[in-house]
C-alpha cells in the first residue's frame, strides 16, 4: 500500500457508453417531463402578463389590468382622487368638514360663489375668522393647492363645486392659471375681508 487513501477502481470507462443509452432513463420520466413542460407553458401564458412590468398577481394580463383602471376623462374622477388624497383629511370625504379642523364645503357660499375668489383660497391659504352658512370659524388653512398643477387644482375645485349636492359652474385650468399668475409673489394667506373684495 503506497497510499493510505483507499485505492479506488478506475471509473468504468465512460467512453464506451454514448448518448444513445439514454434508454436507461425510464420513458415515463420523459413523458412526465413533457406533460409538465406543456402545463408550465400554458400556466405561464395564462398568468404571467408576459413580462410586463405593470402586471402583478392577481392580475394576469395587461388587458385585465387596463379593465380595472378608473374611467378616464369626465374630470371628476381626477378631482375626486385629488380631493380624497389631499383635502379629505380635514374637509372629510363627504365635504362636511370636521369640527375644529375645517368648515364644511357642502352648501358653502365660498365654494358656490365666484370661481376666482374660490381659487385664491387653496393657492394662497386662508387665515382668521370667516363666516360660513351663518357659523363663524376661526382657523388657518395653508396654501394646500399651490403645489398642484393647474389641471389637478381645477379638477378638484370643480369636484367640490359639483359634488354632494353642490351645483355650481366648473372651473377651468385657464382660470386657475390666471389666478396663480395674479398671486405670484404673495406669501401671506388671505383673510375673509380680503376675499370679499374679489369679484
Amino acid at each position: 500500500m503506497s497510499n493510505p487513501i483507499r485505492s479506488k477502481a478506475a471509473p468504468t470507462s465512460p467512453q464506451q457508453e454514448d448518448l444513445a443509452s439514454l434508454a436507461h432513463v425510464p420513458i415515463w420520466l420523459f413523458v412526465l417531463l413533457f406533460l409538465l413542460t406543456f402545463w408550465g407553458m400554458y400556466y405561464f401564458d395564462q398568468n404571467s402578463g408576459w413580462f410586463n412590468v405593470q402586471v402583478y398577481t392577481p392580475y394576469r394580463s395587461v388587458a385585465e389590468l387596463k379593465l380595472y383602471q378608473p374611467p378616464a376623462g369626465g374630470g371628476n374622477e381626477r378631482g375626486k382622487a385629488v380631493y380624497e388624497n389631499i383635502c379629505a383629511l380635514c374637509h372629510n370625504v363627504d365635504g362636511m368638514g370636521k369640527p375644529n379642523q375645517a368648515p364644511p364645503l357642502v352648501g358653502s357660499e365660498w365654494v358656490l360663489g365666484s370661481p376666482t375668489r374660490m381659487a385664491r383660497i387653496p393657492l394662497a391659504g386662508l387665515a382668521g375668522p370667516i363666516t360660513i352658512k351663518g357659523v363663524e370659524w376661526n382657523l388657518a388653512m395653508p396654501a394646500m393647492g399651490a403645489a398642484l398643477s393647474d389641471d389637478d387644482l381645477s379638477a378638484v375645485l370643480t369636484y367640490m363645486r359639483q359634488s354632494w349636492g353642490n351645483k355650481a359652474s366648473a372651473i377651468t385650468p385657464e382660470q386657475v392659471k390666471a389666478v396663480r399668475a395674479e398671486l405670484s409673489g404673495r406669501s401671506q394667506p388671505f383673510t375673509s375681508d380680503q376675499l370679499q373684495q374679489i369679484p
Binding site: 405593470q54 402586471v55 402583478y56 392580475y59 389590468l65 380595472y68 383602471q69 378608473p70 375626486k80 382622487a81 380624497e84 388624497n85 372629510n92 370625504v93 363627504d94 365635504g95 354632494w164
Partner: peptide
C-alpha cells in the same frame, strides 16, 4: 397605499359612513 397604475382601486362614495378607507 397610494393608487398606482398596477394597483387600481377606488374609494367607495361618501356618506355611506364607515365604508371608506
Amino acid at each position: 397605499d397610494v393608487q398606482l397604475y398596477s394597483t387600481p382601486f377606488s374609494t367607495p362614495p361618501a356618506a355611506s359612513g364607515s365604508g371608506s378607507g
